[in-house]
Structures are given as C-alpha cells and as structure tokens.
C-alpha cells in the first residue's frame, strides 16, 4: 500500500480545510469522542429534526485521518434520517473490519470510501473510526 492511498487530496483537503469544522448553533445533540492513547479528541454536533439530520458539524483536535474522517462523515450524513445514518456508519465499520461490501453499500458510503485502505495501516484504524463510533453512540443514546 502506498501512503498516498491514504493521504489523498480529498483527505488532505477535508483535514485542513473542512467546511464543517464549527460549533453548530442550535444543535439538538452533541457527543464527545476521544482516543486516549493518541489524543484525538472531537465533539460532534447534530441538529435532529423529525428524525432527520438537518445539519451537523464538529470541533476538536486530531490527526489528519481522524479530522478528515469526521468531516467526510458529516458531509455524507447531512440530510439522512437517523436510521439511514446508523446504517451507513455500520457499513463504514464493516469496511474497516475488512468485510466485503455489496455494491449498494459502497454507493451509500460516497466519499467515505476514501478510508478503505486504512485497513492496511492497523495503527491508524482507530483514527478513522473515531467519528463514526462517536456518532453511533450519539444515535444509540438518543
């Protein structure tokens, strides 16, 4: 695996210049997530309305992979119902766990497929997973 398969232009762009990196005003829900061993520390803000993610954003610090994964996740999930969001997050986890995805599942992930190669960098898997696990926690607790 080439390192450039992980640090793609898309990932670099989202990590350094995310349009979603802001504290959402009027967020109905927020969830904190962190990787204690490395210091990735994020908070996800979600505005839920009638079971739909009307808007979302994030704040916090972390490596390029965790920051980009958070940004791309939010981009992917805005406009989805909570059920759809949960399903997509589960597909993402499945992809990282090296399970084979169905073509329609791949389609649902959109840009988040950029992290497919992270499975070949075991030390960084938890960075990519952090926002998705944090979101699943938010959805499960609400």
């Amino acid at each position: 695996m080439e390192l450039k398969d992980i640090y793609t232009n898309l990932v670099m762009e989202h990590s350094s210049n995310s349009p979603y990196k802001t504290e959402l005003k009027n967020a109905t829900h927020k969830q904190h997530g962190h990787n204690p061993s490395c210091g990735d520390d994020i908070t996800i803000f979600v505005n839920l309305e009638n079971g739909k993610i009307k808007d979302a954003s994030f704040s916090g610090v972390g490596c390029a992979i965790s920051q980009a994964s958070t940004s791309i996740m939010i981009e992917t999930l805005i406009g989805k119902t909570t059920l759809e969001a949960k399903q997509i997050a589960q597909i993402f986890v499945k992809m990282i766990d090296r399970e084979k995805l169905l073509p329609e599942e791949k389609k649902l992930l959109k840009n988040a497929r950029a992290f497919e190669n992270i499975k070949d960098m075991p030390a960084r898997v938890k960075c990519a997973l952090l926002p998705w696990k944090t979101l699943l926690k938010l959805l499960e607790e609400n």
Binding site: V61, G62, C63, A64, I65, A123, C127
Partner: peptide, 22 residues
C-alpha cells in the same frame, strides 16, 4: 501544522520509527 500521528505514519513509510502521542 501536522499532527504527530500523521508524521509518525509518514516516517514509518520511510523506515524511520518514532513514537507519537502523549
């Protein structure tokens, strides 16, 4: 401007092993 974990991964790809974290 670069998180230490990204640095450590890139160094790793060049055969340089350092630790990153707290």
């Amino acid at each position: 401007g670069i998180h230490p974990h990204d640095v450590a991964s890139i160094l790793d790809s060049k055969g340089v092993f350092v630790r990153a974290g707290n």
